[in-house]
Amino acid sequence: MNLTATSVKPSTSVSFPPRVQFSRLRPSTLKCSMEVGGLDSDGREFKSADEMWADQVGDSNKKTDWYRRGVGYWEGVEASVDGVLGGFGHVNEADVSASEAFIKTLLSELFPSDARDSQRQLVALDCGSGIGRVTKNLLIRYFNEVDLLEPVSHFLEAARESLTPGYHDKHQATNFFCMPLQEFTPEKGRYDVIWVQWCIGHLTDDDFVSFFMRAKAGLKPGGFFVLKENTARTGFVLDNEDRSITRSDLYFKELFSRCGLHLYKSKDQRGFPEELFAVKMYALTTDVPKKVHRTRSKVHANIPRIIK
């Protein structure tokens, strides 16, 4: 999906505004007519996702071309924040701020305080890392080690140059993997968190499921995924230019179920321009999540609250 949004993405056509890279941002000017169907960026209608995938990747040659064109699009984009965010570099601060609030909540709820305060080394994987924007501005501040996975070589080299050893105290960017999600298999039990932002839209449904099935083995016990991605109001929207698909919330949840993943928490991104697709953050676990019990004072239980 161009993960303009591995990030965010908008599109450069008349119908779509600028985009953000493999997991990057993109505009929401096209709407799907029904949940099971969708549109492409030229306005062509598909009755179902199965129909669209059969048309786009129905044989090995088409599938090879799908991925080749997706990476090819990003190979023509400059290695800068504005480049990977499709001309929407100004959303970087809002993106990082929302992601930080989300990950802080997840770490406090899912990782026991004794584990976080001990000598345990926290390790994260940044999928569709692009130029290292998410690692540099967020992940490296919370994890002792961060590995970066990105198929576009000049993006990854820019990340390597900016994330020099000692960039953030004793935390470091450790491994730089130049390969696409659909070909990557993580080291078993290495990661506490696997962060997938603005890039999963480049994967077909089958490869989406296959990736998460392999990636589950890369999590430590109690580890989890964070998926941050553009969402269509209904169905899906196919971008013909960068070979990516924006899925609806229900579409994502169906795929999560196929992956054997459980939705622990989700949150909407706020503060983005209205012309872009809505962006949603999902925290996914491999086990059925335990409910977090919170107690509140009986005295204050019925006090009216301001509706925001």
Rank of each mutant, 00 (worst) to 15 (best):
N61P: 01
S210Y: 01
S60D: 15
A54D: 08
N2K: 14
M281S: 02
E145M: 05
P221S: 15
R243W: 11
V81N: 05
S23W: 07
P17D: 07
G83Y: 03
Q119D: 15
M179W: 00
S97T: 13
L203N: 06
A232K: 01
I245N: 03
T6P: 14
V226M: 04
E78P: 05
V209Y: 08
H154W: 05
D126E: 07
S99C: 13
I131H: 02
P27I: 13
L25M: 11
M179L: 02
P18F: 07
K280D: 05
A278Y: 09
R214N: 08
K290F: 12
V196W: 00
G166E: 09
S266Q: 15
E45R: 09
L125N: 02
L25C: 14
E161I: 10
V292S: 06
V20P: 04
L85F: 14
E183D: 06
A158F: 04
L25D: 11
G38A: 07
N302T: 06
P112C: 08
D268N: 14
R258N: 02
R133N: 07
S162Q: 13
P186M: 06
K220W: 07
F277N: 15
V152Q: 05
D126T: 05
F224E: 03
D147T: 04
E75K: 09
L156P: 04
R24A: 13
R233S: 08
R44I: 08
D239K: 01
G218T: 11
K228E: 00
P180M: 00
I307Q: 12
V84K: 03
N137V: 04
R133M: 07
R270T: 14
E187Y: 08
W198C: 04
Q197L: 06
V20M: 11
K291L: 14
K298R: 13
L263G: 02
T105A: 12
M34E: 14
R243D: 10
E274S: 15
G235Q: 08
M34K: 14
R294H: 09
N61D: 12
C178H: 07
F236S: 00
M179P: 00
A94F: 13
E229H: 02
I303R: 03
V91F: 05
A283H: 00
A217C: 10
T234S: 14
L149V: 08
G43T: 08
T234C: 10
A278V: 10
R141Y: 15
I306L: 15
G38R: 00
V209H: 06
G89T: 03
M1Y: 11
K104R: 15
D169G: 13
F102M: 11
D126Q: 05
Q119W: 12
K280G: 07
D114Q: 15
M281T: 03
P180L: 01
L138D: 05
A98H: 13
R305Y: 05
S113A: 14
